[in-house]
């Protein structure tokens, strides 16, 4: 393991985040810490994960898309951000792509994703 990988592994361990097993197509709820003045509260952002980037490394990120008041909204979260309070998987979707960018040009019925009925948790994972 080179030094950079070692440092990143150390940092991931030090952050102590529990990342559930999720991938593109899954509907997830992200609890994001919002600071208003001096007060901090957790804001939930729920939508479809349309992409995961850079794997499980420290540079990993994911994009969550939802339709808010008729307008498509996408947010990119760093996987290990200290601003993320929690990530929960709401629904597992069956998709055949790693990146669901095609959802951007779809609305309503055609933007649906079928649910996975036979989901098996990863070996060694708790989620």
């Amino acid at each position: 393991m080179d030094l950079i990988a070692e440092l990143e592994a150390e940092q991931i361990a030090a952050l102590g985040k529990e990342i559930p097993d999720f991938k593109a197509g899954d509907t997830i709820r992200v609890g994001y810490k919002v600071t208003e003045g001096t007060r901090t509260r957790v804001q939930n952002y729920e939508g479809v994960c349309i992409s995961r980037k850079n794997g499980k490394g420290i540079a990993g990120s994911f994009t969550v898309r939802k339709i808010s008041f008729g307008e498509g909204v996408e947010r990119v979260f760093p996987l290990y951000s200290t601003n993320i309070d929690s990530i929960t998987v709401v629904r597992r979707g069956r998709v055949r792509r790693a990146k669901l960018y095609y959802l951007r040009s779809r609305r309503g019925k055609s933007a649906r994703i079928a649910e996975v009925t036979n989901y098996k948790p990863l070996k060694g994972a708790d989620a």
């Binding site: 080179d2 030094l3 950079i4 990143e8 940092q11 810490k33 951000s81 601003n83």
Partner: peptide, 21 residues
């Protein structure tokens, strides 16, 4: 110069850093 990585700070900031040895 060993390489670059990022550091997550307590206040939610990410800092891109170069590691020198």
């Amino acid at each position: 110069k060993v390489g670059m990585t990022r550091l997550f700070m307590e206040d939610g900031k990410q800092i891109p850093v170069t590691v020198l040895q």
